[in-house]
Write a protein that binds this DNA or RNA. Structure first.
Lengths: 335, 335
DNA sequence: ATGAAAGCGCTAACAG
DNA sequence: CTGTTAGCGCTTTCAT
């Protein structure tokens, strides 16, 4: 009843466990005849290799750890999906944790991953992660890691990100070209790369066109839908109210969108709205949301591929590779 | 440089490894003084417990396996999120695989999970899974499993599902009450519980009101958005075309919605539309989509809790528990 | 082409 | 309260 092991197979065939182990992994030293016999018995006994024992022995598993802020966010769900598609093909399994945008939880997740002896790690930072020293342990243990999307300038590791600055710059330039002048920005946290870079893009686009930056039109927020709803309410209290809003991402834009709808404020006539990330929802809204698209699924795939390469190459002390994807402005009715 | 082990700590303190092991796990036998010393050294040496070694020894890990059709589908992303929130609190980690709605891949995923010695498994079936004998291995090895949402009548295990029959019945009854007569249904696969039960609900609602079932109005499909687009095109070729459509789930309804919009067919005037699952998108459409809501996040949480209980209780040979959640019809503008 | 032996890091009797 | 010992299932030199 209890699980069959290599020893069971060996006994059954009156050969040694080492031979069975080799036969199972198709080692060239083993004769065809033996291999066949081993495989047959393995099947008959419902033998499943024990990844734990293998991992313990080989000092590495076939598990890739993933830490994301929120599994539910379409962006991360898609990225995970891309990652899984890649790792699946290479016989790796993914272990997923969500930080819930919380630093403490990120730290704990990381510890769990290390304890589980993941072969490598894919990370997107929580919005309130400032100190990143918890990742030092990865270098100490030469566990490869690739940061994707949400990184930090302090991170000195491989990264896959998009050109957030340019994407934001394009989005805001587009608003200006359309004639909007009082352009507000609902910001993301500054410690996170995407929050800061999109903010910079916003500022520079205004400045370049000689539009003065109005502090009242810059509202701090987070990355979630609720943050958008809260922020837009603040903006609606300014006077004069802005005629356009650039939100740090689509969930935030949607949060704003809902409030504007509730208050019967016409989009884009009374207020234009632009998001970032091209969430599938954004195309379905009415008016459809202008947004900046980023190749989410590919980002996941690329990050996973980079990681698998690092794992194959063993520890590499080269300087980190930073892969930057271009974004694309998708103009729809909301602007 | 290489990772510190319990033996390293033991040597450092000139005590035995077993004492260290016990101290680390706060075993009552160990004196406070010793515990403190151990913990200090552990910290200093960056000691991380090796989950593999622990798992090998204890013959069980703290990992919960999850197999879902698609991580990207909001329904599953939310369920996973709920699961993760529960397991996180109990110090379990989740290992996620997606079958991509493919039976073969489901089988392989399952093998990987078993090899990884997961403590338990949470499964939602792929749409083309008919034979379910691959799950027999779980019973043989007494690995607890809970099926959630997508199950099969052949499954004789714990389950967490919603009352799909009633939900569908309510939705179609609502359409009838609204005066629609030519009500079509975009079906899900029959082998999957939710596909079959929602279909039955549809049939019975019609029959009960004395509306004849029109085979032409029943289109087979899958669970994805594309399936909805394809199906609605077929329905638009019937004559007369239906005046209402009940789709097996929201992604399918949205696929239909997009095509109707493209063709400028007024919803609900020319054709009403009802979905199932209350995807966040459904509320944002215009007209907003009438749908049947199910407590997704709670389903995930409950399934996880049931699984953890089973894990705690060790193998239980009781008859399977089937937890059925009620659904709620959410009437919006599309009907 | 196959086997013997050691050991990955940890825990759990058992012994004291 | 602490130590000794054995072993979880597998891989991997080193022999033969």
């Amino acid at each position: 009843m209890s699980r069959a092991t290599i020893v069971d197979i060996a006994k059954e065939l009156k050969i040694s466990p080492s031979t069975v182990s080799r036969a199972l992994r198709d080692h060239p030293d083993i004769s065809k005849a033996t291999k066949e016999r081993v495989i047959n018995v393995a099947k008959r006994l419902d033998y499943f290799p024990d990844s734990l024992a293998q991992g313990l022995k080989k000092r590495r598993t076939n598990t890739i750890g993933i830490i994301v802020p929120e599994i539910r966010h379409n962006f991360f769900a898609s990225a995970i999906s891309g990652i899984e598609d890649v790792t699946y093909k290479s016989d790796f399994t993914i272990m997923v944790c969500q930080s819930n945008e919380d630093y403490e939880r990120e730290v704990i997740n990381l510890r769990a991953m290390v304890s589980n002896r993941v072969a490598g790690l894919l990370v997107s930072l929580a919005q309130n992660t400032v100190d990143i020293s918890h990742f030092d342990i990865l270098q100490k243990r030469s566990i490869p890691v690739v940061f994707f999307d949400r990184s930090s300038e302090k991170i000195n590791q491989n990264q896959v990100v998009v050109d957030d600055y340019q994407g934001a710059f394009d989005a805001v330039s587009h608003l200006i070209a359309r004639g909007y002048q009082k352009i507000a920005h609902i910001r993301g946290p500054e410690n996170i790369s995407i929050g800061r870079d999109r903010y910079r893009g916003y500022l520079d686009a205004l400045t370049k066109q000689g539009i003065p930056v109005n502090e009242k039109y810059i509202v701090n927020g987070g990355f979630r839908q609720d943050d958008g709803s809260i922020a837009i309410r603040k903006l609606l209290e300014t006077s004069p109210i802005p005629d356009a809003v650039f939100a740090v991402n689509d969930p935030v834009a949607i949060g704003a969108y809902i409030v504007l709808k509730e208050r019967n404020i016409q989009i884009p006539k009374e207020m234009a709205l632009v998001g970032f990330s091209n969430d599938p929802v954004s195309a379905l809204l009415e008016p459809a949301l202008t947004t900046v698209s980023q190749p989410i699924y590919d980002i996941g795939k690329t990050a996973a591929k980079m990681l698998l390469e690092q794992i194959d190459n063993g520890e590499q002390t080269q300087k980190p590779i930073v892969k930057i994807y271009k974004t694309e402005l998708i103009v729809r009715q909301s602007s």
